[in-house]
Design a protein around this nucleic acid. Structure first.
Lengths: 236, 236
DNA sequence: GGGAAAGCTGAAGACTGGCTGAGAGGCGGG
DNA sequence: CCCGCCTCTCAGCCAGTCTTCAGCTTTCCC
């Protein structure tokens, strides 16, 4: 099943998470997305893995059996390393510590997250911290433009307002333009991993998207009956 | 049992399934399709078989007597092995767990499936995960082209619309070009294994296919009275 | 040539996948 | 506390698809 494109090929990630299911979910999909992934299941293991591997970015659960994520971060950075971090936190952890994170170039994602959400954050942080590149956060396909930073979307130069889920869905389609995506894949990537509804919600959101960005020719979102959806220029 | 071509020659599969009838069906036909097949009938047996054999891909029933498929997957992957998996699930497994199956390049097929369907998925997953190959998903025969990913079919460069079943039938014919296929074989491979209709449906679909892709010379789909059908260039 | 078996195909009806309108429920801002 | 947006579910609908059936043609054999 065609996964995520691999725009960040070979960036090295260290994923730190004690729940084995979530760890498996993360490492499998981030590897498939083209990252070079190492894992750790405790704070202390994370610290030594970080020392050894010098990852480009760390995905770090705040709640760990031994040290908490902030401790781990402090220890990793003793000695001046400036490895960027994306934290995973519980939804209600309105902790002040979390607040300050985006100041230092880091970021956080609340559980339960969607893979789309997480990989978008990872990409954004890497973009910001890697070199001083202009670092475009703009995706384009045909006359569609999507700005990952501002969440603005244009079709044919015309601004379109999308809800958060519509935005994530469109981003996923654009990242995987010309690739056929099944409803299951879309559900797995765009919706939170604890979503337990059925496929029909994908149809609904495809319908919303079409109404907002694909109501006239040339149509870009195509249905392949029994297979999935694909974002593609027609007449190919 | 029908002659599937062996495009993935010698890839090693581990098939895990507790129903002996289905296991037999699977192992026989996958072997005949050119795979090197090992089997296991329980989760724990699967884990040790995986360790020992290091298969290229695992076909894994979700419902097993001891561990469930997800447990098995997690245990297999402890230690960093990245063996891809094609899951077998019940059709109505709407509830929980099934989510996340398309991550990491894996895929799943719902029971009752057709062998065509399953082997197509297996091939697709192997294609995606094996090396960084260009990974063509395109079959061609004479001036017929069939794209397994997008389900697009061309005859002489001309796009043709096929229904899902027509598509599966044509793919089966193309994979077995120049090989004579009996109606029984076609039924066994292209239709779900629980189909209880009669042979005439194959005639119907051959008729549909001819109308769509074989209405003018040179004819490619030939009837061998009393024997079966074959996809072949004439004058041979 | 005639009969029988095999194959072909049009038509009919049931079924399915996908699309969308309506609306319930949640959350957040005013 | 009310309102509006958003998410998600549900149910109806439609088009396309599957399956069966019956009558027809072709082929084969005597």
């Amino acid at each position: 099943m065609g996964g995520m494109a691999a725009p960040q090929t070979e960036a090295r990630l260290l994923v730190v998470e004690d729940d084995p299911n979530i760890l498996e979910l993360l490492s499998a999909s981030l590897r498939f997305a083209g990252f070079d992934v190492t894992t750790a299941t405790s704070g202390s293991a994370a610290v030594s893995a970080a020392k050894e591997r010098r990852p480009d970015l760390v995905v770090l659960d705040v709640m760990l059996p031994d040290l908490d994520g902030f401790e781990v971060l402090r220890m990793m950075r003793e000695g001046g390393a400036r490895t960027p971090v994306v934290f995973l936190t519980a939804r209600d952890a309105t902790d002040d510590k979390i607040r300050g994170l985006t100041l230092g170039g880091d970021d956080y994602v609340t559980k339960p997250f969607s893979l789309e959400e997480l990989t978008a954050r990872i990409r954004a942080v890497l973009r910001r911290t890697t070199a001083g590149e202009p670092a475009t956060s703009r995706l384009t396909f045909a006359d569609l433009e999507l700005d990952e930073e501002t969440h603005e979307v244009y079709r044919g130069g015309q601004r379109v307002q999308l809800s958060p889920t519509e935005f994530k869905l469109l981003r996923y389609l654009m990242l995987n333009a010309n690739r056929v995506l099944s409803k299951a894949q879309i559900l797995d990537h765009v919706w939170n991993y604890d979503f337990r509804g059925d496929d029909n919600i994908v149809e609904s959101y495809i319908s919303y998207l079409r109404r907002k960005i694909d109501k006239s020719d040339p149509r870009l979102i195509h249905t392949l009956r029994g297979v999935g959806y694909v974002l593609r220029k027609p007449a190919a």
